[in-house]
Amino acid sequence: MNALAARRRHPAAIALLLLVGLLVTGAAYAALAPKQASAATATADQVEHGKKLFLANCASCHGIGAVGTDEGPALPGVGAASVDFQMGTGRMPMTAPGVQVGTKKVKFSQDEIAAVAAYIASLAPGPAIPDGEFTDGSKGDPAKGGELFRVNCAMCHNAVGSGGALTRGKYAPSLRHVDGKYIYEAMVTGPQSMPVFNDTNITPDSKRDIVAYLHAIDKSENPGGLTLGSLGPVPEGLFAWVFGLGIMVGFAVWLGSKSA
């Protein structure tokens, strides 16, 4: 995938990223809606620790004080939720600029991520890390979540969240087996191409229903057997041609050959 990632290098990528940052900032700032599902209360120590971590790992791109550079967007206002999502899913720190930042192995402990989140949240208000109450799928209604998911999410992420293509090499990632917290945070912060689904659009309760739906299909995942990636008729057709026809032809060759 590295070669492909390298191919996605484009002079516009940085500008794009900047734009992302600005928009995320703006969106997140504006998303500070009356009803908030927030859990975090940060201590001064935590903020101080986060600042150190930020200077060591993030400031090269986002600038000292997170004011942004040519390499990375300004972060005041993106909120703790954004930091928790980006670092917690391994998207940040990114290794190389590309059309889209993908997930990698997570490099920081949950405490370190929480510290950086607290530091960023201390710079300007933004969406906070959601309360566990709203990210626990078992407390939601999967059927209602399914309806919301099909209207708001399925067109990009596919009806069962296995992901889909966007324009020019961008993509909506798979949502299978993703922690409810990150699904919630992505909706609130709108990372990269994804639009923001603030709490007035989809209430915290509804967001939990969506998490419940995703977790329900994760659990009862394939009653029919192998799912072939849950990508619809294309892999099914491929399977019929390669394996279906292959096995049939194998038997036909055996049938037509002379016995020893």
Binding site: R150, M155, C156, N158, A240
Partner: peptide, 15 residues
């Protein structure tokens, strides 16, 4: 008619 899923394809023979 309002929702849609990513990867909306027909079966292979209509592809």
């Amino acid at each position: 008619p309002s929702p849609v899923t990513a990867g909306s394809q027909p079966d292979w023979y209509m592809g």
